[in-house]
Design a protein around this nucleic acid. Structure first.
Lengths: 212, 212
DNA sequence: CAAAGATTAGGGTAAAACCCTGATGACAAA
DNA sequence: TTTGTCATCAGGGTTTTACCCTAATCTTTG
């Protein structure tokens, strides 16, 4: 009998941890070696336990599981990370991929899919579906590239636009003239290929990477 | 030994159903009599099984658990409904209360709280915390009352404003003149006590009851 | 029928967004 | 050093949008 796959679980919902714990127990070849409800504890425990797989949620009260994934891959690359979340959003999916996660599972999937995904990432495989890979590529093309084409100042202005500030208010906030802000706004619209300020706001508002 | 509390579970995440099933099994006095992943099946099963308690999520792919609660209370009032959701939002909390739910639990709470809440609602008690009741009253005062003061047309216009349409576009959509729309917008702002169109949009956007 | 309120609309002003051009300064390649 | 590129800044002028007022219909209800 091969040694069991050592798994770390992190989710802010006790009921999800309970479900995962029971299902992993029942699988036989999977062993839960650590369990936590907050991101701040994840990195330390990964270093302590050196699990084969870390199953992480995304939105925690005290932080973000994808950021935790990035840290894990930086300091314990031998631990595979599987993102397991309720949020089926391209932003998170693409970010998880970029952070080195071996897979991204939505909580709506069946439990045998979760179990099998843990086994696969423990073997060093990835579990992204072709559809997910397509979505990641499309996101990079449609959002990340255009976003990188913006200058620091333009991104700053776009964030303030997304907060529904007028150009006048943005100008006050940044201590520059109204005309300057108008120029930045026009540049943002041009670079993103958007017709109106309104479209720019809509574009920005579903880009979670802009929020912080 | 008293007869067990008969419980129906509905949640779109298999992992949550699994966790609840195991925890209820372990409690001893709680019996899961039905389990489902979609709202459309809830009402039929409640009628069939006549459970003591229905534990419902809120956002399902095919509908809304709070709406299901309303239907249950209309046709099987003896079944207590406990909302169990990840969304800790005043809109949902107040809607659940209005729909006759006996309690509103956020998924972040400890499992013993969930178990005890099921026992309590089975005995006919409510599980709203004083803080939750305060939030419900504040919501009614701050949102529901002002919203009810709007006419049908004004609510319609507010929805379109929240979709970031300009007054001109709203006028086209409703086949009325720009001037008419401007009047409605002004009325909305007056009734809600808001300074600007922008504030009205912000007000509307976090009112989930306006979205559909 | 009379009063109240909902829906419609127009006139006029202020503000915001949007188009163009252009100056300055930093930095890197020729 | 010079020259080209680009980020940042800014103004002139136009169009669009929002906002203020008043007021005519139409519906509903006491």
């Amino acid at each position: 009998m091969p040694p069991p796959v050592r798994v770390l679980l992190a989710d802010d919902h006790p009921i999800v941890r309970s479900g995962l714990r029971h299902e992993l127990d029942q699988a036989g070849d999977l062993l839960v070696v650590a369990e936590m409800s907050r991101v701040c504890a994840i990195l330390d425990r990964v270093r302590q336990e050196g699990p084969d797989v870390a199953v992480l949620g995304v939105e925690f009260p005290d932080g973000n599981g994808i950021e935790a994934c990035r840290q894990i891959k930086a300091s314990c690359p031998q631990t595979a990370v599987l993102i397991f979340t309720a949020f089926d959003q391209d932003t998170y999916l693409a970010q998880a991929w970029a952070a080195g996660a071996a897979g991204y599972l939505v909580k709506g999937v069946d439990l045998d899919v979760v179990i099998e995904a843990i086994r696969r990432v423990a073997r060093g495989e990835q579990t992204y579906t072709p559809e997910q890979l397509r979505r990641i590529r499309a996101w990079q093309e449609r959002v990340e590239k255009p976003l990188q084409s913006l200058t620091a100042r333009e991104t700053e202005v776009l964030k303030l636009m997304a907060d529904a500030l007028t150009n006048t208010e943005i100008a006050e906030r940044l201590h520059v003239s109204l005309k300057t802000v108008e120029t930045h706004v026009q540049q943002v619209r041009r670079k993103l290929g958007l017709e109106s300020r309104r479209d720019a706001i809509a574009w920005a508002s579903h880009i979670r990477s802009l929020q912080p």
